[in-house]
Design a binder for these strands. Structure first.
Length: 157
DNA sequence: GCCAACGTTGGC
DNA sequence: GCCAACGTTGGC
């Protein structure tokens, strides 16, 4: 089983929105970056665990945990001219963008702020914390995932 | 709102 | 294939 982190802007879609979704499940549409797409399309498997990260928030941080419940399939929002992430180069015959379904596992009572993550020694090499890191779907080491859950428990979240 | 870092586009 | 210009991300 692999571990991942996926970013979302809570003004657009937050962990609370996931909690209020039918079956607490959603399709992760709108990813328009090839590296992030490849992780979803090629490597994310049912049962993988996902840290849900709130970006462009105050504070930014990890807001909960979800699990993959459907492996990748074409992101149909790319075909919708009215969608913010419309891409004329993606078609039903030749889809360019893919998504997975995730289901909420655990919503933290508060986000674990980015600044606190930076204080945790075992997260020193985490992709999220690298300068200039923008990848919206990224692999997480098991030890990093464990350390973050441990921090959530320590905080009683 | 600012701006550094990054990814993509497109002319050559 | 190079690289300048541009658009986006995301912390602050």
């Amino acid at each position: 089983m692999k571990h991942w982190l996926m970013k979302t802007e809570p003004d657009c879609f937050s962990v609370s929105d996931l909690a209020n979704s039918p079956n607490q499940t959603t399709f992760w549409d709108g990813v328009r970056n090839y590296q992030a797409r490849n992780f979803m399309r090629d490597e994310m498997k049912i049962g993988d665990l996902v840290l849900v990260y709130h970006s462009n928030a105050s504070p930014p941080g990890v807001a909960g945990v979800a699990k993959v419940v459907a492996e990748s399939y074409p992101d149909h929002t790319a075909w919708d001219k009215n969608d913010k992430h419309y891409d004329a180069k993606s078609t039903p015959d030749s889809p360019r963008w893919f998504m997975v379904d995730i289901q909420l596992e655990r919503q933290f009572a508060d986000v674990i702020p980015l600044g606190e993550l930076r204080e945790i020694k075992s997260l020193e090499e985490m992709e999220l914390l690298r300068k200039g890191s923008r990848l919206s779907v990224q692999p997480v080491q098991k030890k990093e995932f464990t350390a973050i859950l441990k921090e959530a428990d320590r905080r009683g979240l």
